[in-house]
Computed example of a mutant assay.
Amino acid sequence: MVQKIGHRGAKGYVAENTLESFQKALDLGANAVELDVHVCATGELVVFHDFTVDRMTNGSGEVHKLTLEQLKRLTVAGEFSIPTLVETFELINRKCWINVELKGHSTAEPVCQLIEEYVTERGWHYEDFIVSSFQKEELERTKAINPKIRLAALSQASVEQALEWADELSAYAIHPHFSLLTEDNIMVAKSRGYKINVWTVNHDEDIQRLETYKIDGIISDFPDRL
């Protein structure tokens, strides 16, 4: 069965990367949620996509230069707040698995620490997580810190690049943009043992086409369409 993965929660319905958006994805039957993390100025991991808060909030400035208190004072899309990764884990509470995308710099170490804490002290499993990134150095750092954490190579450029990274990282999966897929490169990825989760697929005709391919998951703003 192809996994339904909610992009930044259920971004098509509720403001991205908010607790309310993640809850919406759960309500819509998502098998997983995808989210983005940065480290803020006071060291906490916050769930946010952009490197600045300008697009999504009533504030301005770079996420990594703002304290958690400053970030918490902002409103997302006029009504929501920026969650920490801890708050998000607490909400999800193993109701689905979580794709943590390392978006900001120096996110590998604190993400590894938090995952390890939830696995060793909170009864979660490594299978509850996939860590992905477009930044190879963050994935390399994650592997060096804890090789048990499942990695995914993100790519907007080519499936070949994703496979090259995946081979070097001993990754679990590749996460290419859906437009890059062909039956041939899917066959190559599968022959090397990789899971394939594609992004970001919102239109019915694209979903129907992808469902004819041997892929493992589809990341969508509308998880109920999958």
Rank of each mutant, 00 (worst) to 15 (best):
residue 92 I to R: 03
residue 34 E to M: 00
residue 133 S to G: 07
residue 68 L to Y: 08
residue 73 R to V: 04
residue 57 T to M: 03
residue 86 V to P: 01
residue 154 L to G: 05
residue 21 S to F: 04
residue 187 M to A: 15
residue 2 V to L: 12
residue 202 N to E: 12
residue 116 E to G: 15
residue 4 K to E: 01
residue 205 E to W: 13
residue 75 T to W: 04
residue 184 D to S: 14
residue 53 V to W: 06
residue 83 P to G: 11
residue 2 V to Y: 03
residue 148 K to M: 14
residue 137 E to Q: 14
residue 2 V to N: 02
residue 139 L to V: 07
residue 181 L to N: 10
residue 65 K to I: 09
residue 105 H to Q: 13
residue 173 A to C: 12
residue 120 T to A: 13
residue 58 N to L: 14
residue 192 R to E: 00
residue 106 S to T: 12
residue 180 L to K: 09
residue 205 E to N: 13
residue 145 I to K: 02
residue 145 I to N: 06
residue 184 D to F: 11
residue 210 L to P: 12
residue 33 V to Y: 03
residue 82 I to M: 05
residue 86 V to A: 11
residue 99 N to Y: 04
residue 57 T to G: 08
residue 121 E to R: 15
residue 10 A to K: 01
residue 97 W to P: 03
residue 89 F to Q: 01
residue 158 S to M: 10
residue 107 T to L: 10
residue 120 T to E: 14
residue 129 F to C: 02
residue 161 Q to H: 08
residue 2 V to Q: 00
residue 55 R to N: 10
residue 79 E to Y: 12
residue 4 K to L: 09
residue 99 N to W: 02
residue 180 L to T: 13
residue 184 D to E: 15
residue 107 T to S: 11
residue 145 I to H: 03
residue 167 D to L: 14
residue 11 K to D: 04
residue 59 G to T: 10
residue 150 R to D: 04
residue 167 D to N: 15
residue 178 F to M: 09
residue 133 S to M: 09
residue 102 L to T: 03
residue 206 D to S: 13
residue 77 A to E: 15
residue 177 H to V: 09
residue 108 A to Q: 07
residue 67 T to A: 13
residue 9 G to T: 01
residue 102 L to N: 06
residue 190 K to C: 12
residue 156 Q to F: 07
residue 15 A to M: 06
residue 18 T to P: 11
residue 86 V to G: 07
residue 117 E to P: 02
residue 158 S to K: 12
residue 131 V to A: 05
residue 104 G to Q: 03
residue 38 H to C: 07
residue 185 N to C: 13
residue 209 R to G: 08
residue 169 L to S: 04
residue 93 N to T: 00
residue 86 V to C: 07
residue 12 G to V: 04
residue 137 E to P: 02
residue 222 F to W: 14
residue 124 W to E: 07
residue 83 P to R: 11
residue 128 D to N: 15
residue 222 F to K: 03
residue 196 I to K: 05
residue 103 K to V: 11
residue 42 T to F: 02
residue 217 G to H: 07
residue 24 K to R: 15
residue 72 K to L: 12
residue 180 L to Y: 04
residue 39 V to D: 13
residue 103 K to F: 11
residue 25 A to Y: 12
residue 84 T to Q: 02
residue 140 E to I: 09
residue 194 Y to A: 10
residue 180 L to C: 06
residue 6 G to Q: 06
residue 84 T to E: 05
residue 192 R to S: 00
residue 109 E to M: 08
residue 46 V to K: 00
residue 123 G to A: 09
residue 168 E to H: 04
